[in-house]
Design a protein around this nucleic acid. Structure first.
Length: 415
RNA sequence: GCGGGUGUAGCUCAGUCGGUUAGAGCGCUAGAUUGUGGAUCUAGAGGUCGGGGGUUCAAUUCCCCUCACUCGCCCCA
């Protein structure tokens, strides 16, 4: 390591990027709040089984992407690769059964050991929403509507497509899975190497293969729709009907499957073609058996996660930062007075910048670089008259303002 | 984990068919302007040419390895 470097797949988020990330989180949380979701903040690491058991021992995430380690007390710990399992664990440990239904919004970093690409880092940030304790399709409709509304608020909804599918209840899923295994086993010699591997581990995934040969075989594969029992069928119909009422467009995609074991019924992805291979910006589904898997009371759940980096790359409607007022003291007496004035104006709610050093010219240059609306120039002349020079930096107009009237005059300035 | 591309100043990039002190634009610093920013002009700072090894009289340039980014696969947010 000649030059000090960030660890592979990690990024420093500063400046414009930080503003965009902040905007995505703020917009999402604000929207979630209007939908009645409360904030939850969970640990960044958990005992490894929390993720290993729920996501599935056969899933890629568990098999090769987890940041797991033994801590100094000998505990087997994993940095969270997602939020859902941790939130369900929190639900169980916190004894929250009596408060059902619960609606949670969370955001923060997650970790997966993968090969980095644009929109895919090893430490990445997610927004996350979960509804616990609602068995009916109302939760599915609301959670998808929330995702759509956040995309709308970010100005991205018309650049995304909602892909929708159902995996049915566990019974339906199991019979379908068996049928798929039977079908693909008959065509095993024509399948790609990857898909032969999937056949053993996660046969549903073959439906999603990009391999040309696989696609041909998939074309005639049995369809989930034909294996849904009537309850699952009715459930999915109700979800679709709700989305129709809300005029949320969706694309029924029978090949949309999820890689994690805990999903049942509704599965969905908001995808974009603007990010290359990493098209999913918000994705999730129903996971009715998950909490039980963790040893909790049988409790239905549904949720989604969104990639903040991906959303931030697309969303260009972040509000411009508020333009500051530059305070420019000249001389020692002025420094002291300005220090106090600066504090007072900030307490009054103004965004105020006071450079730590420099003459008038330098400080005005800095003010200009910060895109300040105005400068308050305070020198011996002004102090003698109990005034301050207020310079509008957009048009160069200057006026003398009494020290006591500064706030009032600043309020009259255009943004 | 597999395959392809890229890596030269803070940023965006030229360039060297192997040969003295490696360039530009933008940005940065200072001055013209010791109390007036943006524009202009002048000057300056800033590079072990991603890192390590090899070939050679000589490597930023050729070869090997490695690291990082990037595109696709895999997987996923």
């Amino acid at each position: 390591m000649a030059k000090i470097q960030p660890v592979r797949g990690t990024h420093d988020i500063v400046g414009e990027t930080a503003a965009r990330h902040g905007h995505v989180v703020a917009a999402a949380r604000d929207c979630a709040r209007r939908y009645g979701f409360g904030d939850i903040d969970i640990p960044i690491f958990e005992f490894t089984p929390v993720f290993a058991r729920t996501m599935g021992e056969g899933s890629d995430v568990v098999r090769k992407e987890m940041y797991s380690f033994t801590d100094r007390g000998g505990e087997d710990i994993t940095l969270r690769p997602e939020f859902t399992a941790g939130i369900c664990r929190a639900f169980i440990s916190g004894g929250m059964q009596q408060d059902l239904p619960l609606k949670f919004f969370a955001h923060g970093p997650a970790f997966r050991y993968e090969r980095p690409q644009k929109g895919r880092q090893r430490q990445f940030n997610q927004i996350d929403a979960e509804i616990l304790g609602v068995a009916g399709p109302g939760a599915d409709i609301e959670i998808i509507a929330l995702g759509a509304e956040i995309l709308h608020d970010l100005g991205l909804l018309d650049r995304c497509v909602l892909e929708l599918n159902t995996l049915g209840d566990p019974d339906s899923r199991r019979t379908y899975r068996d049928a798929l295994v039977a079908y693909f086993s008959d065509h095993k010699d024509a399948l790609s190497e990857d898909s032969i591997d999937r056949l053993a581990r996660n046969p549903l995934r073959i439906l999603d293969s990009k391999d040309e040969g696989d696609r041909k075989i998939v074309r005639d594969a049995p369809l989930m729709a034909d294996f849904l029992n009537s309850e699952s069928e009715d459930f999915f119909a109700a979800v679709c009907e709700g989305l129709d009422v809300l005029e949320i467009a969706y694309n029924l995609n029978p090949r949309l499957v999820r890689g994690l074991d805990y999903y049942t019924h509704t599965a969905f992805e908001f995808v974009t073609d603007a990010l290359g291979a990493q098209g999913a910006v918000i994705a999730g589904g129903r996971y009715d058996g998950l909490i039980e898997m963790l040893g909790g009371p049988s409790t239905p759940g549904i949720g989604w996660a969104g990639g903040i980096e991906r959303l931030a790359m697309l969303a260009d409607n972040a509000p411009a930062p508020e333009r500051p007022i530059a305070l420019v003291p000249l001389g020692e007496a002025a420094e002291r007075l300005a220090l106090k004035m600066c504090h007072g104006l900030r307490r009054d709610g103004f965004v105020v910048d006071m450079a730590f050093r420099g003459n008038l010219s330098r400080r005005l240059k800095r003010a200009n670089k910060l895109h300040a609306r105005a400068a308050l120039i305070l020198g011996d002349d002004e102090i003698a008259r109990n005034m301050v020079t207020l310079r509008n930096l957009d048009d160069g107009e200057q006026q003398d303002v009494a020290l006591d009237d500064v706030a009032a005059h600043l309020r009259l300035l255009p943004e």
